Computed example of a mutant assay.
Amino acid sequence: MSHPLIEDRSAQCALMTRLVFDHLTNWITAAASEHSLDLAAHIEERTGASRRSAQAALKRLVDAGWLTRSGTARRAVFTPGALRQVARSYTLHGLQEDLPWQRDFAPHFALPRHVERMVQHGFTELMNNAADHSGGTSVTVSLRQTPTHVQLLVSDDGIGVFDKICAAFSLEDPQHAMLELSKGRLTSAPDAHTGRGLFFSSQLADVFDIHANNTAYQRRAWETSGWKKGRALPRQGSSIYMAIALNTTRTLDGVMNAWSRAGDGIDFDQTRVQLRLLTSDGKALDSRAAARRVGSRLTTFKRAEIDFEGVTDVGHGFTDELFRVFAKANPQVELVAVNATPRIEALVKSAKAA
């Protein structure tokens, strides 16, 4: 039987080895691109490791799929493998979001062209949001490619997106902030932004998560339910994660076209409002105040689908306020009820006819 102290030291060594390996994967992709002929020497110089340790690390990285080795036994050539990752931190003051993409990230990944275009859009939009809206001082970005997906994580140390929206629009609940965010065209700086960035980034992704202010919401492209609450990460600022399948048929133009009535992606003039963001399972939407929250900012669109999925009970006041009062005051906005139960459809029809 081994001694507990020996077991403890062995566990510490194993943990240290794992942590070193995890650290290597944050920068080995870029290093392999820039030092393909002298990668072992570069690892030695960068980490202070011995030649033997560097060679062992390279073998492990090749075996794990992070590197590809070619050349000869005496003259090895290393290039990025099927697994790739770049992680960098930036000061937000004066940040030009296109430069990190062009300089530090794009050259080191091998993505299908249409996927790369979507990742570029999400990357620059989320970086710009952090720079212009977070109120923070720094942002950390990680981009990882696997054989099946590309994954982007952008984290800042600012106020947090939900608190920012609540403060800018006099909202009291992060749930109401998420409702507004889900409509699109939401910005706290209308003179400089159109409110497209976060909305379209979420629509491009197969998986999209927002963590801020001890609140989390997630969207899965294959689920018809849209946005739903997630498990929050206790951290300062905002963390936004998006993942896109490499074999997706989705394109940036296709996503933008879907939210344009003309189908050309020029105008962002139609939206969908998920009513389940206003309530929890089994609870009714019964108030005119809730209906006014739904109608908030819909005058910036020409068409709005009011999505009742997950909502089984609404009151007369809610449907009257939205489908009669709001509709008559704003005839230029077409309101369309979708995924409604027969009873809710009848209430909507009654309100429109009143």
Rank of each mutant, 00 (worst) to 15 (best):
M1D: 12
S2R: 14
P4A: 02
L5N: 12
I6S: 11
I6W: 05
E7K: 10
A11T: 13
L15Q: 13
T25M: 00
T25W: 02
N26M: 05
W27Y: 13
W27T: 15
W27A: 04
I28H: 09
A30H: 06
S33C: 13
S33T: 13
H35F: 09
A41K: 08
A49D: 10
R51C: 03
R52I: 05
S53C: 01
A54C: 09
Q55H: 04
A56D: 06
K59N: 15
R60Y: 01
L61I: 08
G65Q: 08
L67S: 08
T68R: 11
G71T: 15
T72P: 15
A73M: 10
T79W: 00
T79R: 14
G81N: 07
V86N: 07
A87I: 07
A87Q: 15
A87K: 15
R88Q: 14
S89H: 06
Y90F: 11
T91C: 02
Q96D: 15
P100T: 11
P107N: 13
P107R: 12
A110T: 13
A110E: 12
P112S: 03
R113S: 12
V115P: 07
E116C: 10
R117I: 02
V119G: 01
V119D: 02
G122D: 10
L126K: 06
N128T: 15
A130Y: 09
A130F: 08
A130I: 10
H133F: 11
S134E: 03
S138W: 08
S138P: 04
T140C: 05
R144H: 03
Q151D: 15
L152S: 10
L152P: 10
G160Y: 03
V161H: 03
D163G: 00
K164A: 05
I165K: 07
I165A: 09
F169E: 04
S170G: 02
S170Q: 06
E172Q: 13
D173T: 09
P174Q: 05
L179M: 11
L181F: 06
S182C: 07
K183Y: 06
L186N: 02
T187C: 07
A189H: 06
D191T: 09
R196D: 14
G197C: 06
F199M: 04
F199D: 05
F200G: 12
S202M: 01
F208A: 03
A212F: 04
R220F: 14
A221E: 09
R231E: 14
A232K: 07
L233G: 05
L233F: 02
P234W: 04
R235S: 08
G237M: 07
S238M: 04
I240A: 07
Y241Q: 13
M242P: 14
I244V: 11
I244G: 08
A245D: 11
A245P: 02
T248D: 12
T249Q: 14
T249C: 03
R250G: 01
T251H: 08
S260T: 06
G265F: 07
G265Y: 04
I266S: 01
Q270M: 08
T279A: 02
S280V: 14
D286A: 07
A291N: 11
V294N: 12
L298Y: 04
L298P: 05
F301G: 05
K302P: 00
K302A: 05
A304G: 01
E305T: 10
G310R: 01
H316F: 03
T319A: 14
E321I: 09
L322D: 13
L322A: 10
F323V: 02
N339G: 07
A340W: 10
T341F: 00
T341R: 15
K349F: 03
K349S: 15
A351W: 08
